[in-house]
Design a protein around this nucleic acid. Structure first.
Lengths: 363, 363
DNA sequence: TCCAGGTGTTAAATCGATTTATCACGGGGA
DNA sequence: TCCCCGTGATAAATCGATTTAACACCTGGA
């Protein structure tokens, strides 16, 4: 069965194609009510669906968005970003072209050309982790950067507020009464994530604000993995008792999982002996630890939404600035008061088992 | 700057648009070599890129593929599927429309209509986990099902061979010398994954083939999560010594992570006292366990490739059958010989630390 | 009777390519 | 000289919509 064209509808309704077009698009015109109904009836009698191609060609507007990303598909993080962007697009009748460049510059160039050839109405350039990216040549000036900051200014972008997130995590620990709070950072030096420094800065600012001196001995680095976290935390636990941290803020959940291992290996308990907080809120890690890991969530879904809304011109206000998005603390069971404050009445802590196991962020 | 049209190239080269079109598309014609070069030079002098819209309209061929999925973006699994599909598409000059329906039937219908309006050349319908799906009305007959089996026959589809995968896992344990091998399954009853039964069948077949009687006591179920796995495995470990399993095959890696917890809680060691094998090869779980988890990989990337290749008509042979794809065992360090076989020479096993930590599937 | 003005509808141009059918020209054979 | 044929290039139709400008008809007032 061949495609149903607008002329078929016109024939069925006994009118011209102009009339059909005007009616179906609710264009301002003087078509009588009776004719309108006849056209509409004919249209769905023959099962008419206008060709987006033809319409796009004529209108120079395609209702499609291009989403270019370095590895969005291969990382567990960024699916949520995609989902957020997708969601907004769908609600506004847009279809999205997804291109995964796998970080290859040639592929990237080709993708940009292909999307231009398709005359996408908007372009989003996404990274799977927060970093500074070179602006690929040929990228439209109105492209929106998602989870990355363009090297040159003048573009709109949305990134997580990792500094505030780092502060929030530290505040969580300070608030629980901790004073000796270690920071376990990534040792990555090439292509180092901005987040590494930002989270650390946030942590430092909260320590300062709480009047706690930052102890260089309470800083450790490791490779971003459970093993790296384990090694780094092992070092920290080797410190003499009075210097040993009572809480550890890990760069991310993978390293936090390693922290669990190191802590367990010493026969210490979480959070009774040591509190741990992670970052990223990776469901498969954080929620599945024993006890479930308190962590800071990256607002991937929200960033995806934001980027698409800006790209489609729905958020009129935000023009060209970089938007920073809040990273909420997800409270689970790995943070408690430091042992000193609890040890006194020997066995009197309220049970920790009944805390929230859900991953719902607080607002 | 307005779009560069083919007529601009024609003007620049001093020829007709027909000539330009024929030259740039390498169409069989009698254009002289000299003219060809002139046209090509003019084309990239003015920076011409043909409009995919116009070309698509004329040719009734768009070089785009629609990929509809229930939640592909929100699950960590399926990113690899997307990557595989994407990869093939890119290599063949196709652009892919990604639509995430979030399982909503209305959204699905709308997506199918929108993709039809865009005149996509091919359609892939993907699920994030292996199951039987209802065929949405309006889906083109030549659509390819990815990681799911359509309720009605006549469609092409690709799924993991979970039966063979289950067998491979069991064989891994039998091969290591185990005889008391437990199976920890999902307790899911609503919308139960086909994989649950298939993996179990595979396991049973290997037991039979090895002459080992299946012991109903060695079957347990739980919710699909670390907690569920932990509870189920705890039960198994409660069995009297001579009946207790020496190896446990878990429905997936999340449950296997729970198994680790249960085993550790008893003060037992992996794999010295108990071997564990998982399924899915979720990097964030399997590779990060201590010791790293031996598991069976779902060939998501390969399935994605296959689906796209079939959709684009690159794989001519495979016409309408369901294709089952091999699930390779990923050997890490959680499987060893049963304690009885090892205990004798007290301390003589070769170190397990130097085994492959890489996730490369063997071929 | 003629024209102005309003109402309902449509013919034709357009978007930017591809593709079919045709044209112009020159050389060689009868 | 005339015709045929091969070579090189192009005019025009087409894909399926939207949109502009115009047409036909009717009513009422001068």
């Amino acid at each position: 069965m061949a495609r149903v064209r607008i002329s078929d509808v016109a024939a069925a309704a006994g009118v011209s194609v102009t009339t059909v077009s005007l009616v179906l698009n609710d264009a301002p015109s003087r078509i009588s009510q009776e004719t309108r109904e006849r056209v509409r009836a004919a249209a769905d009698a023959v099962g008419y669906a206008p060709s987006s191609l033809a319409r796009g060609l004529r209108q120079q507007r395609t209702n499609t968005v291009g989403l270019i990303s370095d590895q969005i598909a291969t990382t567990p993080y960024a699916g949520r970003m995609l989902a957020g962007a997708q969601d907004v697009a769908r609600r506004h009748g847009q279809l999205v072209f997804l291109v995964d460049t796998e970080g290859d510059a040639d592929v990237e160039r080709a993708a940009i050309r292909a999307l231009a050839a398709q005359q996408v109405d908007a372009t989003i350039y996404a990274s799977m982790w927060h970093r500074v990216v070179r602006v690929p040549e040929g990228l439209p000036r109105d492209a929106v950067f998602l989870d990355c900051t363009p090297e040159v200014p003048g573009f709109r972008s949305v990134v997580p507020d990792d500094r505030a997130g780092g502060a929030a995590a530290a505040r969580e620990l300070v608030g629980a009464g901790h004073r000796r709070i270690a920071f376990v950072n990534t040792a990555d030096t090439v292509d180092r994530p901005i987040a590494a420094d930002l989270r650390f800065e946030g942590y430092l600012s909260v320590l300062a604000e709480a009047g706690v001196a930052a102890d260089p001995a309470l800083y450790a680095e490791g490779e971003v993995s459970a093993r790296g976290g384990r090694q780094a935390v092992s070092q920290l636990l080797d410190l003499p008792d009075e210097q040993r941290p009572t809480a550890i803020f890990c760069f991310n959940d993978r390293m936090a999982a390693g922290a669990y291992m190191a802590v367990r290996a010493r026969g210490l308990r979480i959070p009774e002996d040591i509190s741990i907080i992670g970052y990223d809120d990776q469901q498969l890690i954080a929620a599945e630890q024993d006890p479930p890991l308190t962590t800071v969530a990256l607002p991937h879904y929200e960033m995806g939404r934001w980027a698409m809304e800006v790209a489609l011109g729905i958020r009129a206000g935000e023009t060209d600035a970089t938007h920073q998005m809040e990273c909420p603390v997800i409270r689970r069971d790995s943070v408690g008061p430091p042992p000193a404050l609890v040890a006194k009445p020997s066995r009197r802590r309220t049970s920790h088992t009944e805390r929230s196991h859900s991953a719902t962020p607080e607002r």
